[in-house]
Design a protein around this nucleic acid. Structure first.
Length: 887
DNA sequence: CGGGTCACG
DNA sequence: ACGTACGTGACCCGG
């Protein structure tokens, strides 16, 4: 049997546009609506397997409805240019899909669809009609199913007449009456003012049609009767406007909608232009497009090196080369080595040499190992940090790396969430490489392919990497980020790898003891909660907890999440006065977190041989330039509450008689703000070394220092936080639990005093709009394409990001500088002290007793002088036998 | 594998 | 009118 899919083109394009973030490709073309449209088409083709297909569009301009009602669709926002520029792309896309398109001047897509579904009905063919507009429900029939998008575009609700009956108690045709009564603000159809969906449905259930409702106003009551009578004409006109016209004079020849598959060639070209990397990979055009002439595929001779031919590679070793280190696994401290690849480009031929790791480690591999460790042999690679760690665990010290493709790509676009070689080769228009996932598989299906395929794949990775080096080097130069790259990030990679290899010692016995105590407390609290609640349930399940609190115990639910009641700490704290159990649950939650994440989780990461944990700092994740930490995350060890803070006691020196020493920047973000904004008041506060929150309270409340009480200081502190985050009255009001009006007043008073800060906030948003990005003091860059988005929320988010990123990012620049300088000083001065951790504004060291005095001076000195600002930087230092004591 | 929650700066 | 504070990672639950 045939099956026709009809898509309401304008409606789906709008839906996709507003549902997805404003994506754009590297030439600045917006692509989110096209992307959403594409994924929907692919999904429909795959799941529905249509035999016939078409998309209907509004032809735009005036339709016959305007001639009847000039206000039709009035008051509707102009289509944002970010969307209208995408319509031509969608039309090209449909051509590549080989899906027929219909539009007819004077008619809307609705009418074309109405006419076509009528024809299909008459022929007795199955139709699936896809739209975001509930009006379409009037076209449902035994033959025609209407799918309405829900929550964005990925999910749809399907309606046949039965489903419409179930949901609204109406026939498809009565949908028109529904709209006649309630109107439709988006089309500026008036309906009857004051009649919403509920009232309209009730009337229709009683009377059936608009006409019958009007004929029976006598049985309506009071205000409603007046309203209906007064707006009777409007209701009739609205009904007429809502009626889809089904007699458009047009070709309805069934066979002209036949769908026999897309043009893979055209589609892959289209996807490449739009930079739909994931879709390109998903459809695997690799094979198809490799033959296509428009795609450059470089030839490569991929040599799998053996003991017999290793001499050929050794012979060719030069003073520089692109290499690729293939190691399997997310955690580089536990990576399984596959091998190392050398890419040799001698001008005539491209040759890659894949050296299996066992061979590299054998006697025959010695010259290669020496080459890797020779700092005078310059290497370019992808992900130096990871390669260095993986090799170090195998006893190979990697040195002399002068370019890292991953690091460069990150600096060029720190928000890119897919920085794989495969994705980058597409992004920078270079010969493509297969994704690792496609070659190796993933999860349980992961396996290395046979030698020839493996050596080809890793060889192509090395080649792609080599091709990317000059491109990215130029881009860094253009963005004035070469110093940031060569003088900061690249040296930092090595510093981080060194810190991580060293690891930090953990007192596992102490941790276990803590775990036993927590276990006892958890048992006690658990039984107490069950008793108070009168039922046993899984306290860790927000779903079950919600049911107990809000249904069984009948506590007032306030916040909702997508899936049900919210039970987060903020909600529970409000509920605490109602029932004793709530406080217990909060306590249970905090202890359970300590137990699962910080006792059990941390214990799993301790190496039994050394008693140390080795975190992995990620240098290419955070959009602002900060580091992040994994396996385990050592940047979120508890400190705010004493119960959790005790966890810090298990972080100890790795040598007897040594100390832990920690130094943290004081108010680095506000000091950075003072420097960037050049705000006189803020600068003055730091030049006089005042308590910044107290000073803010004095200025905002206009009082003397002695009159600032703890509450005023607390509020001033929240305002300072808000300023750094890109303030909004709503956010501040939530944080301080005050009204928005009060919050707005605070902000206004703050800006009245700190006028330079206000100027900075205004200017940085303007700059971001003009340039499309913001930068830190060291020229770190973050692209903000959404700063001009027509959607208020999306745009506001970008504006706050524009305000925050230069501040957070410059602070990140500064501590990174301090780390590189610190590593240098330790080496130069022959100190035995070791840098172990970075926690955004804090550095942690282990220090032998006889270096304590030196380090207490040196660390804060280096941190404070890492970068010269117009206000002083300050770092406070302390030491003790554990991290806990170095406070 | 996504959502909810919570730990940190 | 819109409905949010900025940046991360780990754990648990439940489909």
């Amino acid at each position: 049997m045939d099956k026709l899919i009809i898509i309401d083109g304008n409606s789906i394009a709008f839906r996709a546009f507003y549902a997805l973030p404003l994506l754009s490709n590297s030439s600045g073309l917006h692509t989110n609506a096209v992307y959403g449209f594409t994924t929907m088409l692919l999904k429909l083709i795959e799941e529905e397997k249509p035999t016939h297909f078409l998309v209907a569009f509004d032809a735009g301009k005036i339709t016959f409805r305007h001639t009847e009602y000039s206000e039709y669709k009035g008051g509707r926002q102009k289509t944002p240019s970010e969307l209208s520029e995408q319509f031509p792309l969608i039309k090209d896309l449909l051509k590549a899909f080989k899906i027929p398109q219909f539009e007819l001047s004077g008619y809307e897509a609705d009418d074309i669809i109405g006419t076509l579904t009528k024809a299909a009905d008459a022929r007795g063919e199955k139709v699936l009609l896809v739209s975001g507009d509930k009006d379409m429900l009037q076209l449902a029939s035994e033959q025609v199913t209407v799918a309405i998008t829900r929550k964005g575009i990925s999910e749809m609700d399907r309606f046949d007449p039965e489903a419409i009956k179930e949901k609204y108690g109406l026939t498809p045709h009565q949908i028109i009456d529904l709209k006649g009564l309630m109107g439709d603000t988006s089309d500026n159809i008036p309906g009857i003012p004051g009649v919403g969906e509920k009232t309209a449905l009730k009337m229709l259930h009683d009377f059936g049609t608009v006409e019958e409702v009007l004929a029976n106003t006598a049985s309506l009551k009071g205000k409603m009767k007046e309203k209906v009578e007064e707006h009777a004409k409007s209701a009739l006109m609205s009904k007429e406007l809502a009626t889809i016209y089904r007699e458009v004079p047009m070709e309805t020849e069934w066979d002209s909608f036949r769908y026999d598959g897309f043009d893979g060639q055209a589609l892959s070209t289209m996807f490449r232009k739009l930079e739909f990397k994931s879709l390109l990979e998903k459809l695997d055009f690799g094979a198809v497009s490799a033959e296509a002439e428009d795609l450059v595929v470089e030839s490569l001779e991929a040599v799998a090196v053996t003991e017999a031919n290793i001499g050929k590679l050794i012979e060719q070793l030069d003073d520089h080369a692109a290499i690729h280190v293939e190691a399997i696994g997310e955690n580089p401290h536990q990576a399984v080595m596959v091998g190392v690849v050398w890419f040799i480009d001698d001008g005539a031929d491209n040759t890659s040499y894949y050296v299996p790791f066992a061979l590299l480690q054998s006697d025959a591999g010695k010259p290669l190992r020496d080459w890797l460790s020779d700092a005078s042999k310059k290497k370019q690679l992808f992900d130096l940090h990871r390669a260095q760690l993986a090799l170090a665990w195998q006893g190979i010290h990697l040195a002399g790396v002068d370019f890292d493709v991953l690091l460069a790509a990150y600096l060029l676009d720190p928000t890119d969430s897919n920085l794989s070689l495969s994705a980058l080769s597409v992004k920078y228009g270079l010969p493509s490489v297969k994704a690792d996932e496609d070659v190796f598989g993933k999860g349980a299906k992961f396996r290395l392919p046979e030698l020839a395929a493996l050596s080809d794949h890793v060889g192509r990775k090395a080649m792609a990497m080599a091709r990317m080096v000059p491109v990215l080097r130029d881009e860094l130069e253009k963005g004035e980020m070469h110093r940031l790259f060569y003088e900061l990030e690249l040296p930092l990679s090595a510093v981080l790898a060194e810190m991580e290899m060293r690891g930090i010692a953990v007192d596992a016995e102490g941790l276990k003891t803590l775990g036993v105590e927590l276990g006892k407390q958890l048992d006690t609290i658990m039984s107490s909660i069950y008793k108070l609640a009168g039922v046993e349930f899984n306290i860790n399940s927000p779903k079950q907890l919600g049911e107990v609190l809000f249904e069984k115990l009948g506590l007032p639910a306030s916040k909702k999440t997508k899936t049900g009641y919210s039970t987060d700490a903020e909600v529970l704290e409000r509920l605490a006065p109602y029932n004793e159990v709530v406080g217990q649950i909060l306590h249970y939650r905090s202890l359970a977190k300590l137990q699962s994440t910080y006792v059990e989780g941390l214990l799993k990461e301790v190496r039994p041989e050394t008693g140390k944990v080795h975190t992995y700092y990620r240098q290419t994740i955070a959009a602002t330039g900060r580091l992040s930490s994994q396996f385990p995350n050592l940047q979120n060890i508890p400190i705010r509450l004493e119960e959790g803070r005790k966890i810090r006691k298990v972080f100890v020196p790795s040598e007897p008689g040594w100390y832990m020493l920690a130094a943290d920047y004081s108010q680095i973000e506000l000091r950075v703000l003072a420097h960037i904004s050049q705000d006189e008041k803020l600068k003055e506060a730091f030049l006089q070394n005042m308590d910044i929150h107290t000073k803010t309270a004095m200025d905002v409340f206009g009082v003397e220092e002695s009159a600032v009480d703890s509450n005023m200081r607390r509020q001033a502190k929240a305002v300072n936080f808000g300023i750094v985050y890109g303030i909004s009255d709503y956010g501040l009001s939530q944080n301080l639990d005050i009204t928005r009006r009060e919050a707005a007043q605070f902000i206004e008073q703050y800006f009245a005093v700190f006028q330079g800060v206000r100027r900075y906030m205004d200017d940085i948003v303007k700059d971001a709009r003009r340039d499309g990005y913001v930068t830190t003091l060291l020229q770190r860059r973050r692209l903000l394409p959404e700063i001009t988005h027509s959607n208020f929320n999306i745009r506001s988010f970008a504006e706050r990001t524009a305000m925050n990123t230069p501040i957070q990012g410059t602070a990140a620049d500064i501590i990174k500088l301090a780390m590189v300088q610190m590593a240098d000083r330790l080496a130069k001065e022959g100190l035995k002290s070791r840098m172990l951790l970075q926690v955004h504004d804090e550095l942690v060291f282990e220090v032998p007793a006889d270096e304590l005095e030196t380090m207490k001076e040196l660390v804060p000195e280096v941190m404070a002088s890492a970068l010269k600002l117009d206000v002083p930087l300050r770092a406070d230092v302390d030491f003790g036998l554990t991290w806990y004591d170095a406070k």
